[in-house]
Design a binder for these strands. Structure first.
Lengths: 189, 189, 189, 189
DNA sequence: AATGAATGAGACTTCATTCAT
DNA sequence: GATGAATGAAGTCTCATTCAT
C-alpha cells in the first residue's frame, strides 16, 4: 500500500472518530462504530492508536495544531489592540468554521481523558497571545493582572461566545463585534 | 426506621455520588461504587432515583438550588455596580467554598445527560441578574448588547476564573478583585 | 383485626396476583406489584405465602378447586354420552366465564414452577371423569384405550378449543357443539 | 476463521440454548449459562442474536423449519385418510425423535416471547394440512367445521398425546395407533 | 498491514426476600 | 399481624481490546 494510503487511513479514522464523538458523545461512540464510519477494521484502529483514550487525545492535539496554524502570526507593526482583535476574531472564526472542533472541546474541556501532557502541549497555542499581553502590559495598555488569569479569562469568553453562537438559530452580524469589544474593555487598562 | 434516617439516606447517596463523580468522572463511577461510598445496597439507590441519569440531574438541581439560596437578594437601593459586584463575588465564593460543585458543573455543563428540563429549571437562578442588567441598560450603565449574550459572557467569565482559581496552588488575594473588575469593565457602557 | 378481614386479605392477594400474572406474565409481575394491587405491604404477602412459587401454586390449586366445585356431580341415571357432554360443556363454560383462569393455566401448564404435589392434587378433579370413562368402556361405549391416554386427549381438546375460542373476536354459537361432537366421536367406540 | 467454524458457532449456541431452555426453563437459563454450555464468550452470543428474546424466537423458527422439512409432501394419489394418518404419524414421530423440540414448544406455546411474526411464519407449516382438510370437506369425508377450529383441535390432540407419551415410562406400541384413530374419528364426517 | 469474530469484565438495573418498626 | 425500606445476588447487555487469519 502506498504511503499516501496509510496517511489517508489514519486521517480517515481521526475524521470519523471526531464526527461520531461530537454527534453521539464519547460514551455512545464505540470503537466498532468508528471503524465502520472510517471503513476500516477495528484492528486497524489499534494499529495506529494503542487505545481509545490515546485516539481521543490525538484528536485533541490535532485540533490544537489546526488552531495554531489557522492563526497567522501577529503583525507586530500594528497597534496591540488591532493585533488582539485580529487574534480574537480569527480564533472565533476558526471554531465557527469548524463546529465539530468546538463541540469536541466543549465535551472534553473538563474530562480526565485529556492527559496533562496533551493539555500542556495544547497550551502552547496561546503562547504568542501571552507575549502580546505581556507587551501590552509593559506599554500600560493591558491591565496589570497575572497573564495566566487574563488568558483564562479570554479563553472563557471565547468559549462562552461560541456556546451562545451555536445555541442561536440566527446570529446578528454585530454579536462578534460586541464580544470583541467586551473582551477588550475587560482587559485594557 | 425514623424519618430522619430516611432523609439521611437520600442525602448520603447524593453526597457520596457527588464526591465520586467529581473525583473519578461520570463514566468511572459505577452505581456500585456510589452504593459502597454511601454505605447502602445498590438497590437502595434505585429506591430514590429511578436511574443513574436522574440521580445526576438531581445533583445538578440541588447545586442550582443551593446556588440560588446562597445569593442574597439584590439590594435595589444600592448602585447597580455594587449590586453586580455583590452578585459576582457571592457566586464565585459559593463555588470556591464548594469545590466539588464547581467540578461537577465543569464536567456536566455540556453533557447531554443534563436534560432540557433541568437546564430550564437551573437557569431560573440567573433571572434576577438578567433583570439587573436590563435595568442597567435602561440607565445606560450597561452596554446595549443582547441580555443573553451578556449573561453567557458573565457565566463564561465566572467559570474560567474558577478554573484558574482551582488550578493555582496559591491564589493572590487580589485575583478575585481583578476578575470582578474585568467583568465589570467588559459589560459597562 | 377480625377474622373476616384476614380472610379477605389473603383472598385479595390471590385475586390481585392472578390478575397481574395473566396480564403481565409471571416474570413481569414483581411481588411489589402484587402487594400494591392488593393494597397490602409486601411483608404481608410473606405472612401468608412463604415465597412467590408457593403463592403461584396456591393460585393453581384454587383454580382446580373452583373447577371441581363448578362441575355438578354426574347424574348416573343419564346415558353416559349425556353425562360426558354435560361434563365437557360445563368445564369449557367454566373457563369461558373465568378467562383469567384459562390464561393462568395456559401460562403455567408446562412450567416447572407448578410442583408435582400441586399437579397430583389438581388431577383429582378429573377422577370422576376417569370413572365415567371406565364405566363407558365396560359398557363398550368408549374406546378401549388407556384411561390416562383418553383423559390427556380430552384435556388437550378442551385446552385447544379454549385457545381457539379466546383467539376469535366473534364465536359462532355452534362451535362448542362442534367441539363436543368431535371429542365424543374421538372417544366413542 | 473458516466459514465452517462460524456456522458451527451459531449452531452450537442454538443447540446449547435449546438444551438448557428445556432443561431449566427460560427464566432459569441466564445467557451466561448458554455461553458456557456453548463454550463461547457471552459477547459472542450477542454477535449472532441481538438479545435473548430473538435467540429464543430463532430457536422456535428453526424447529418449525425442521418440522416442515421432516414431513414429506402429501401423496395426493392416496386416500385422504391415509394422507392424514401419514401426516399425523410423521409429526408425532418428529417430536418423539426430538424430545427437546417438544419440551421447547410446550414451554413457549403460550408465551408472549414468541412474536406475532414468528407465529405467523411458524403457522405456514400447517398450510398443507389445511388444504387437505378442505379437500376432505368437499368430498364430505371431513366434518363441516371451520378449518381453524379443526386445526386447533388436531394441534391440541398432538400436543396432548406427546405430553402423555413423555410422561409415561413405558409406552405401548399401540398408543400412537389409538391416538391417530381418535383424531380421525373426531374429524371425519 | 488489515481484518473483525471472539472475548469477558463490568456496567446498569431488577426484584425476591428480610426485618426493624 | 402489618408494613415497606433496605438489601445484594443475579440478570441482560455493551464494548474495549486481542489475535488468528
Amino acid at each position: 500500500m502506498l504511503y499516501i494510503c496509510i496517511v489517508n487511513k489514519k486521517e480517515k479514522i481521526l475524521t470519523a472518530a471526531l464526527e461520531l464523538l461530537v454527534e453521539k458523545g464519547i460514551h455512545n461512540t464505540p470503537m466498532s462504530a468508528i471503524a465502520k464510519a472510517a471503513s476500516t477494521g477495528m484492528g486497524t484502529i489499534y494499529n495506529y492508536f494503542p487505545n481509545k483514550e490515546i485516539l481521543i487525545n490525538e484528536i485533541y492535539l490535532r485540533i490544537k495544531e489546526d488552531e495554531k496554524s489557522a492563526f497567522v502570526a501577529f503583525d507586530t507593526s500594528m497597534p496591540i489592540k488591532t493585533q488582539f482583535e485580529n487574534y480574537s476574531t480569527s480564533i472565533i472564526n476558526f471554531f465557527i468554521n469548524n463546529p465539530s472542533y468546538f463541540k469536541f472541546m466543549e465535551q472534553l474541556q473538563a474530562s480526565p481523558i485529556i492527559t496533562q501532557e496533551s493539555r500542556a502541549e495544547g497550551n502552547k497555542s496561546i503562547e504568542p497571545v501571552a507575549l502580546l499581553l505581556k507587551q501590552g502590559q509593559q506599554e500600560r495598555i493591558i491591565k496589570n493582572i497575572a497573564i495566566d488569569e487574563i488568558l483564562m479569562f479570554i479563553g472563557g469568553a471565547v468559549l462562552s461566545y461560541l456556546r451562545w453562537y451555536f445555541s442561536q438559530s440566527k446570529t446578528s452580524a454585530t454579536s462578534l463585534k460586541n464580544q470583541t469589544q467586551m473582551v477588550w474593555d475587560a482587559i485594557k487598562e
